[in-house]
Computed example of a mutant assay.
Amino acid sequence: MTARWWIAFVAVCTAGGVAAQDVGQLSCGVASTYDLTVRPDALLFERPEVAPHSVRLHDGSLATDGRAVALRADEQDRVALFERDVRALVPKAKAIASDGVDVAARAVREEAGRASPGSLSSGELDRVLASRVADIKRRIAASQSTRDWQADAMRAYAQEIVSDITPVLSQDVGSEAMQLAMNGDLDGAAALRDRVADLSTGGQARVLARLEAALRPRVQALCPAVRQLLDLQSGWRDASGQPLMLIETGG
């Protein structure tokens, strides 16, 4: 399965709420079949399906599947620049992801408030949200692998936030709905339950759409640097002499 290029992880996590024709714009028009791990001593690109399965870059050197690639001096310079530029992009991309978690949490809180205004009064929902946000942001800050930043991971983070507040919301709504029913407002109780059910089914798509709108400009601001990587890898070959494309056009 083709993995999105790591710098586009924020855009990909919002793709569920974006038209297909917009995804290329969000992902800077590039993609990769590799997962990237940023190690202190090297960049490691890995994929299971097609050789080369691993590509290692460090200080102007290049190795594929454990075999060193002979490079000219100018190619060594471009490999070194590629590594330097990727390392410079990582903290910027992680900052976008971390801020995206805050955007998602605010959107979820607003969704909960619209569904059941009374659910915000106790402060429990805010406590649960703050705890989950802090946990996710710690994971993003500590991670050095795009496996933690790509579409599935980011969607899972959004779902974690929604799932965490569901028990709190359900408890508050149950009490509120029962009170409405006891006061004879059966329609009001039913409408309240419907709004909460809609948060579970349609709320995530709305949260992702908010993320897309908020983060699109910041993702696009990084696109020139991402596209520069395409130029730096031009002409690279693996240890078997086959063309090597760590990233490619078409995201």
Rank of each mutant, 00 (worst) to 15 (best):
M1A: 13
M1Q: 09
R4P: 01
W5A: 04
W5R: 00
W6C: 02
W6R: 03
I7W: 01
I7M: 10
F9R: 03
A11W: 00
A11M: 07
G17N: 06
A19T: 08
G24S: 15
A31M: 07
S32W: 04
A42M: 09
P52W: 02
H53M: 13
L57E: 03
L57M: 14
H58E: 14
D59W: 11
A63Q: 13
D65Q: 12
R67I: 05
V69T: 03
A73H: 15
D74V: 07
Q76R: 14
R78D: 03
A80L: 09
A80E: 14
L81S: 12
L81R: 15
F82M: 04
F82Q: 00
E83A: 11
R84G: 02
D85V: 03
R87K: 12
A88R: 14
K94N: 06
S98K: 06
D99N: 12
G100N: 04
D102A: 13
V108E: 00
R109A: 14
S119T: 12
L120C: 07
G123D: 11
D126E: 15
L129E: 02
S131Q: 14
V133C: 02
S143E: 06
S145N: 08
W149D: 00
A151R: 14
D152P: 01
A156S: 14
Y157G: 00
E160W: 11
I161H: 05
V168H: 08
L169Q: 07
Q171E: 13
D172S: 09
V173L: 09
S175H: 11
E176Q: 10
E176Y: 04
A181Q: 13
M182A: 15
N183G: 15
D185R: 07
G188M: 01
G188L: 01
G188T: 03
A190V: 02
A191P: 04
R195P: 01
V196M: 03
L199D: 00
G202F: 02
Q204I: 03
A205F: 13
V207S: 01
V207P: 00
A213E: 14
P217I: 06
Q220A: 10
L222E: 07
A225S: 15
L232Y: 00
Q233N: 07
R237H: 15
D238L: 05
S240K: 11
G241A: 11
L246T: 01
G250V: 06
